[in-house]
Design a protein around this nucleic acid. Sequence first.
DNA 1: ATTCATCATCAGAAATAATTATCAGAAAGA
DNA 2: TCTTTCTGATAATTATTTCTGATGATGAAT
Lengths: 300, 300
Amino acid sequence: MMNFTLRQLRYFDALARLGHFGRAADACAISQPAMSMQIRELEEALGSELFERGARQVRLTQLGEDFAGRVGEILRAVDELEDVARAARDRLTGRLRIGVIPTVAPYLLPAIIGELTRVHPELDIRIRETVTPNLLEELAEGRLDTAIVALPVSEASLTETPLFEETFVLVRPKSDEAKPVPNREALREMRLLLLEEGHCFRDQALSFCAMRSARPRELLDGSSLSTLVQMVGAGIGVTLIPEMAVGVETRSAAVSVARFEGPQPSRTIGMIWRRTSPLAYRLAEIAEIVRRAAAAERAA
Amino acid sequence: MMNFTLRQLRYFDALARLGHFGRAADACAISQPAMSMQIRELEEALGSELFERGARQVRLTQLGEDFAGRVGEILRAVDELEDVARAARDRLTGRLRIGVIPTVAPYLLPAIIGELTRVHPELDIRIRETVTPNLLEELAEGRLDTAIVALPVSEASLTETPLFEETFVLVRPKSDEAKPVPNREALREMRLLLLEEGHCFRDQALSFCAMRSARPRELLDGSSLSTLVQMVGAGIGVTLIPEMAVGVETRSAAVSVARFEGPQPSRTIGMIWRRTSPLAYRLAEIAEIVRRAAAAERAA
DNA sequence: ATTCATCATCAGAAATAATTATCAGAAAGA
DNA sequence: TCTTTCTGATAATTATTTCTGATGATGAAT
């Protein structure tokens, strides 16, 4: 029942090629008896001889000849394993599944993807855009490698690293442009348009206004920041959006953007991954790249 | 530099399929720590992790996923080696290179080949027909597995086993049919046609006549028994041929065949092979088949 | 016949792998 | 929360395998 070993196959290969126990042993950096023993063991495991030992030469039997080809193939495949592992170790290679929350994705992704593929062209990047709870679940199940969300997440099983801080700005109808910027209390009296349930940005906005939950009457839910801004442009109310979305979202709508005075509302965007992920230290590297891309994006 | 082992690949395969150290260890009939250690060793040899150990589950990393396929292939190929060896051991399979001397080949081969392929249909039989010295050389060099020649050969490195005894008969012109059969002395005075140098049958015929070597004048060399018989039919002289050749060779020529009186000239035909040949015990079996085929042929 | 080359064999040493017992961390249930 | 349970890691020990260096045996070459 004793199965043979890879070592024996390597010795066999050497002996098959060199046809000489002593030289094959040298080639394998072992002593000649070790070579003899392992070959014999291999033959015993097989129940047939692979070599015909003449006094002057060692010849492959027909079975040996057959083996030589097959074993060569096997050893090639085995050595390939090492290559595969090395390639995976040296460069960041293959699939990288990134999850991103919807209030960040449209504004950050172009820059991130551009920078990542520039630095690691062999990377196969897959993006998943959904709300934080979904991202956390998929991360835990191993369907995502990392996610970009608002911190903190406070999951012991996850590592988190901040990427950048982003402030929220007020978006109101163009007609309000000249009016003073409302403070938090004043804001509470206005018609505040928010994203639908599930988006963390909704909670962050509410939290800024010191509102526990939305008063159903006065609020209208939108499914994306774009929608909210369009609604503002139509004079339905006001909304908050992250600084980063300003450029893209307010271009085509008749709205005005204003910064709050005093304490700026803001949130921290960060990257998270399973603490146990073998990509962990790779992901730290990727976080750095993303940080750079985000900084460049915000500067523009 | 330490390379990994087949054993580790088998353990890896089990773990990759079962996703559980304990169960994989059971499947491999080892303890769980042994499994853990070997997997870790494999990972260390590769320099990358193959599994991501979660508290509740063991998941393949991307590299591990890649490995799973490759390792499966490798193990399949390795197990195939065993199959190949077993097939070679159980049945006589593959190539069998038989050398035969020219004074036996045409008469014996049809029966031998027929019988051998009947008993071992998977046998790939190759025939080499040449004179004994060539056969011995090719046998020694491993270019032949066995040879059928006249015994004795008396080479210590070769095993020989007799197949059958065959007597020589006199072939003379049809016109001589009524004359008494000459004895050895009388034969010496006749024009004896012989095979050219190198054929053992030439030496055996000369030896019967108690002649050391042929007297150049009186002899004429032929390159085959057929030629000799044709020459006899043309009235050029007389010749000896092995009993076994009578049926084939004297059919179409105007010759008469006569047995000698008293001590019959004869030779032993046998099979030889390298004592070191791993086919040795197989060849004994083949010799038995050949013996049977020859007996059947001679009976007909 | 003697020497040389070459592979086999042996006994002890070194390296490898296995076992049992135990630990530590995370998930699940009370 | 606080256990309990599940799971893999670690440690110490034992068993097995593999290697080496010395020696033996055998056939080929001088």
